[in-house]
Write a protein that binds this DNA or RNA. Sequence first.
DNA 1: TTAAATACTTTGCCAATCGAAGCACCGAAG
DNA 2: CTTCGGTGCTTCGATTGGCAAAGTATTTAA
Lengths: 158, 158
Amino acid sequence: MDRTDESLIALRRILRATEQFGRELAQASGLTAAQFRVLQLVAEKGSITAKEISVRMGITQATVTSLVDKLVSQGMVLREKSDRDRRQTNIGLTERGAHAIDEAPDALQQRYVRAFEALKDWEQAQVVASLERVAAMLDADDIDASPVLDIGDIRGRH
Amino acid sequence: MDRTDESLIALRRILRATEQFGRELAQASGLTAAQFRVLQLVAEKGSITAKEISVRMGITQATVTSLVDKLVSQGMVLREKSDRDRRQTNIGLTERGAHAIDEAPDALQQRYVRAFEALKDWEQAQVVASLERVAAMLDADDIDASPVLDIGDIRGRH
DNA sequence: TTAAATACTTTGCCAATCGAAGCACCGAAG
DNA sequence: CTTCGGTGCTTCGATTGGCAAAGTATTTAA
């Protein structure tokens, strides 16, 4: 088996583990993975528009609306019309939301974080470099958006 | 920002790109990502039971049934009662299924594969090593849950 | 002032997934 | 041979995430 296959297999393992991760998170926090990601974005920016969430997550606004609905009904975030532009809705974190962020992820990432931090310094550096490299190789957006000519030309219909 | 965060961010990028990947695959092949994974398992083993699919994919049998239903209705696979144990259903690949496997994935992995193969030898080695390491760190989770025997019982509430 | 663009919501749809309940079948214990 | 608990699968009813299209405000350009 060649290296390419090995790398694909490892990738698949990563994906699989992560899916599982997400399901456990759902269990543990009462939030689903998608809802949690929204919550993280809100927390990260303090206040954020639906539009920006949709762009950052790569989903449509309609979907954002429905995710935010769920978070609102759980009291995790709240909507507020923007004053600057009254078409916009700013989504902000509540106490509960902040609390959920603090609690939930910890349990989930802990294992990975611990293992990662147990690596030697140069090992960590190597892992980060490799992950970033892989991310770049996979990231279609990069390629679409970049002026690079040699890749992806044949792909056609998008 | 510390290395741990960097690695988590890169991981997230990988996941996101992969989701996108899946959606493109759905577009290109008429199969969804989940259906495609089932198809791959069938192809890999030649003939496989629903149970085994559910274990390998980490989903319930109910879900497998519905995925296989869709593949059957598209003529990609077929069901056959096992002779050895008539409770079991063996799921086998059709011509069309085999064909779909040959066609679809290629177009999709191409981007990654090309980029990967463009790396220098030592870079490839490093990427593979890092991915495997990360997979192992994430999988640790599985190890808790996966003594295949007790799965689904101990974990209880799902 | 009016028309086009933008930000969001609503509606109606589909896929993936689950748990619970049901059916068929196997194997072991009588 | 009959009965009964476990196993493999399907059915049913929900929920979530996701999308596209149409609708509602609101801003901006003409």
